[in-house]
Amino acid sequence: MFGANKGQANLQDGSKLKIAIVQARFNEDITNELHRAAREELLELGVPEKHIEHITVPGALEVPLALQALAEQDRFDALIALGCIIRGETYHFELVANESGAGVSRIGLDYGLPIANAILTTENTEQAVARQTEKGRDAARVAVEMANLIGQLA
């Protein structure tokens, strides 16, 4: 295979990385667990505690603006977006899910900065609870791997 895993053995080493987490407070029980799991995984991957910044915003629609402000600081190797959008009876779910997702992607591409998107979009609270821990951990692993990969490609 062309370039398969060349030099990628150490992509899960977070010891030299600085990572910021943006957490939406809406559905806080879920997002607090997402944050706990992500932070725990970052520490397990070697990211120093002092190199993990955590900020909160009201909801998922505010996450991209906070990510943009962090990206503009040029201090972080990767960012993590945490939130939880649970379908209700109105179109608001689609609006929030689509706009927050598009915003997160746009910031990453505009700034060339890896952003692990763990803004859950679920049909109900039970689905969110079932995913909260693993998605938090996944986000941390994605952030570390992509930060290292982009560093190697630069």
Rank of each mutant, 00 (worst) to 15 (best):
C84S: 15
S105L: 15
P58D: 03
A60L: 04
A71P: 10
E41V: 03
L65V: 12
G59R: 11
V57D: 10
Q68R: 15
A102P: 03
L43I: 12
N98Y: 04
E41K: 15
L67A: 02
V63K: 08
R106I: 00
P58K: 05
P58R: 04
G83N: 02
E94V: 02
E33I: 14
I80G: 00
E53Y: 04
A37L: 03
E44N: 15
L34F: 00
E33H: 07
K50Q: 10
A71K: 07
V47D: 05
N117G: 08
E99P: 00
G59E: 10
A38E: 04
A71V: 11
L45K: 12
A38F: 05
A37N: 00
D29T: 13
L113A: 03
A81G: 01
A78S: 13
H92Q: 08
S105P: 00
G101S: 14
N98V: 02
I55G: 04
G59I: 09
A81N: 01
G101E: 14
D29R: 08
L61Y: 08
L82K: 05
H54E: 15
I52N: 05
P48S: 10
E44V: 10
R87H: 09
E99R: 15
L43W: 00
P114E: 06
L113D: 02
A78I: 07
I55F: 03
I107Y: 02
A118W: 00
I119R: 09
E72H: 06
T90F: 11
Q68N: 11
E72Y: 03
A97Q: 06
H54V: 15
I86T: 12
G59H: 07
D29M: 09
R36M: 09
A60E: 14
E40R: 12
G108S: 11
Y111V: 07
I55C: 13
A37P: 01
L70E: 08
A38S: 14
E44C: 03
H54T: 14
L95N: 09
L70K: 13
I55M: 12
I115N: 01
L65R: 08
S105W: 05
E44I: 06
I55R: 13
A81T: 00
Q73N: 06
G59T: 09
E41P: 00
L95F: 14
L82N: 08
V57R: 14
E99V: 11
K50D: 12
